[in-house]
Design a protein around this nucleic acid. Structure first.
Length: 423
RNA sequence: GGAGAGGUGGGUGAGUGGCUGAAACCAACAGUUUGCUAAACUGUCGUACGGGAAACUGUACCGGGGGUUCGAAUCCCCCCCUCUCCGCCA
């Protein structure tokens, strides 16, 4: 969530930037400002009242000790009035606070100045294109046909076991998954990330802190009896490692990497581009998460972007990087780069990674801060990126590497697969 | 799931109604001393929200929420969590 001080001090700019996300904040921001005034007035009044009560209570204690019960009892009567006024103020304060909080968490993050305007993916800005490896001609089957041909992914059985969007990987298909996960983790380790294995279910507080709630309620699987959510990405548990904490300056930047299965209900997306591995309810992903000082977060974003690009080059996949336009960005992000690989069988780009800087948006909810060298406390910045999500990588790999007698495995993955070809 | 014990500052841990935002010790940080390291000594050492140009100051917070009381870390109720034993179990 946004810092109240920014809304208060730079109201016009906030509204302007929100418009980039096609978000009209006029009403909600004015409500927030009004509630904030109420909150502050009530708090000041209540604090003063409390101060008086504290003084009286102290005096009463002293009087009793001196045996002056009459005087003490006389003072007691005065406190009754203070108490009832305090109660009233307290209720007013609490309701203002709660209302304020409810509104505040519904305001999306401000997009960075460099975010291009626009409404849909059409308006995203291609910032890097590496298309030399896109085949200019030839027949390339889509991955679902290849999956069937070589019996490596069984969609029908997955559907029978669970439902659509839960594929069953078999034989070399399963081994390729495992190889990719290990490859991605090893690469991240080499780049200085620390590997963590997070829980796959989180409580509401965690889902709230990274911004999935209340914005994405309904997109997560929810185990009602235990009030737990299946994670849509490792970002949620891994970022929540630092909820309610104050890191030391020397601990920054925090660089974590985690493999996890991810679960998404994908409600509302039935029927479009859901064939094969294109859109799943359960998939595997290796996620990188960083916590940085505010002044370093954009440099870190570029580093993460370069890192992900490096992975795709090593996998010999044609790809492009797009900077998301305001309308296509997520609720929580200030700047996002999407990575798209070329699907030779489907003749289109597939999103395989999203690298974002959330600035202080998540940290404000997480209460994630750090103490600088002078002992001053600041809100940290958080970033994360997929590095990478498996299914569409697998789709692109299978489709692009079709050879006469099977599917050739990219050189760098061969030691991880311990086979060179799927046939 | 059943029974019991317990949750206090970064850690250990004292504190059963007012003088306690909280002893002491450890850790951490700054400095002094020493030829270096170590040690010793001195000092600093919670967070949030208000007020103030600042020095500073008000309020709240001892797992969370509610209650009793003039006054709660301390008493009462509910919830959560941890530990021990039993049960179940990869």
């Amino acid at each position: 969530m946004l810092q109240l001080s920014i809304i208060r001090e730079k109201t016009a700019e906030v509204l302007e930037r929100l418009k980039l996300k096609n978000y009209d904040g006029a009403q909600i921001i004015s409500d927030i400002l009004r509630l904030d005034d109420t909150r502050r007035e009530s708090q000041k009044a209540l604090d003063d009242l409390q101060a008086q009560s504290n003084i009286l209570a102290k005096e009463i204690g002293i009087l009793f000790k001196q045996g002056k019960a009459d005087e003490a009892n006389a003072l007691k009567e005065k406190t009754a009035d203070l108490k009832s006024r305090a109660k009233e103020l307290d209720e007013k304060l609490e309701s203002a606070r709660k209302e304020l909080e409810d509104l505040l968490v519904r305001v999306p993050n401000l997009p960075h100045q460099s975010v291009p305007p626009g409404k849909t993916a059409e308006d995203n800005e291609v910032v890097l294109l590496e298309d030399a490896l896109i085949p200019s001609s030839g027949d390339y089957l889509p991955h679902w046909e290849l999956a069937a041909k070589y019996d490596i992914i069984d969609f029908a059985t997955g559907t029978r076991i669970t439902g659509a969007g839960f594929p069953l990987y078999k034989g070399k298909g399963a081994r390729l998954q495992r190889a990719l996960i290990n490859f991605f983790l090893d690469q991240a380790l080499a780049a200085g990330y620390t590997e963590v294995q997070p829980p796959y279910m989180v409580n509401a507080a965690s889902a709230f802190a990274t911004g999935q709630l209340p914005d994405k309620d309904g997109q997560m699987y929810y185990a009602q009896v235990d009030e737990l959510y299946l994670i849509p990405t490792a970002e949620v548990p891994v970022t929540n490692i630092y909820r309610d904490s104050i890191l030391k300056a020397r601990d920054l930047p925090v660089k974590n990497v985690a493999y996890s299965a991810c679960f998404r209900r994908e409600a509302g997306s039935y029927g479009k581009d859901v064939r094969g591995l294109n859109r799943l309810h359960q998939f595997d992903k290796v996620e990188i998460v960083q916590v940085t000082r505010p002044e370093n977060s954009y440099q870190t974003l570029e580093e993460m972007r370069d890192y992900v690009a490096g992975l795709l080059r090593k996998l010999e996949l044609p790809f492009r990087i797009v900077k998301l336009c305001g309308g296509d960005m997520s609720f929580t992000s200030a700047l996002t780069y999407d990575f798209e690989v070329w699907s030779a069988g489907q003749k289109r780009w597939l999103e395989v990674s999203s690298v974002s800087n959330f600035e202080a948006f998540q940290s404000n909810r997480l209460k994630l801060r750090y103490k600088d060298e002078a002992g001053k406390i600041h809100t940290a910045h958080t970033l994360n990126g997929s590095a990478l999500a498996l299914p569409r990588i697998v789709a692109a790999l299978l489709e692009l590497n079709q050879v006469n007698d099977g599917i050739s495995i990219p050189t760098i993955l061969r030691p991880y697969c311990s086979f060179k070809i799927i046939n």
